[in-house]
Write a protein that binds this DNA or RNA. Structure first.
Length: 251
DNA sequence: AACATGAGCAACCGCAACGGT
DNA sequence: CACCGTTGCGGTTGCTCATGT
């Protein structure tokens, strides 16, 4: 059972906070299922974890969001959608819950009206067959992956920030000259080899979930992560990939 | 002063992913 | 490969407080 009978719910008291804080300081942030027992708290493990992550953890930034933080949230949300933990990861001292709450109370309405405007605009323009890369883990047995030239020039900019310039440079690298799928050299190999994709993407997070021991490719995951959603609307990948490749990416 | 309403935030819930066996 | 326990995430709820009437 998830919740034993009589487990306490609702707001945390100062005493409970102290017990939890001491427990985490002593045992660390792991084995959450043992925390209620270790701390002597009549709370479920989820509640303990949430309280620590959202409130008690050191370095948590309280108070209103600054202008640059708001700007970053807007950009990252455009890029990632409702992936609050990823967005919060780029905002030092902010939790996913903080970001989510701020978005829902301050920013959602603003972007809704903006989106409606974009949809109207989009409806008036021609439609194209967009292939949107999805996070995928590639088996080494996929034959067309052997043609490493497909991924030529896909490399993240040196500068790991999200500034417009680095994005532009990167896109020029990706799409420049339509050599994507036709070129001769390679910047991608099996993970673990010298010419692998960067292990971190533009967001500074470790990518390649589920990829193990350098046995699998994880290429379009990176591409998908990099694509700003507004650019997705403008890029027709069917020009860049053959039918087999398109089908594989679409899943 | 009393009540209604809305905003902000903390906490809960359900589910998917992950890892161990 | 299936099962099970655990973890982490996002959506949602509900409480508190400020503001308006």
């Amino acid at each position: 059972m998830e919740r034993p009978l009589g487990v306490r719910k609702g707001a945390w008291s100062e005493e409970e906070d102290n017990l939890l804080r001491k427990c985490i300081e002593k045992y660390g942030e792991e084995k959450w299922h043992q925390v209620p027992l270790r701390a002597g708290l009549n709370r479920c493990r989820k509640s303990c974890r949430l309280r620590w992550l959202n409130y008690l953890k050191p370095n948590i930034k309280r108070g209103g969001f600054e202008a640059d933080e708001v700007d970053l949230i807007l950009r990252l949300h455009k890029l990632l959608g409702n992936r609050w933990s990823l967005i919060a990861g780029r905002l030092p001292g902010r939790t996913a819950n903080d970001v989510k709450n701020y978005w829902n109370t301050h920013l959602r309405r603003k972007t809704v009206s903006c989106d409606e405007h974009l949809k109207e605009k989009e409806a008036k323009t021609h439609t194209v067959n967009i292939i949107r890369p999805r996070p995928r883990t590639f088996s080494k047995n996929i034959k067309w992956l052997e043609d490493k030239s497909i991924f030529q020039n896909i490399a993240q900019p040196e500068d790991n920030s999200l500034c417009k310039d680095s994005e532009s440079v990167w896109w020029e690298n990706v799409l420049g000259g339509k050599e994507f799928g036709q070129g001769a050299s390679s910047s991608v190999g099996r993970l673990g080899e010298e010419q692998q994709l960067p292990s971190k993407n533009l967001l500074g997070e470790n990518s390649s979930p589920g990829t193990t021991k350098g046995e699998e490719y994880n290429v379009f995951y990176e591409v998908g992560q990099f694509l700003p959603s507004d650019l997705w609307l403008d890029v027709d990948f069917s020009d860049l990939l053959n039918t087999q490749q398109q089908q594989f990416i679409l899943g």
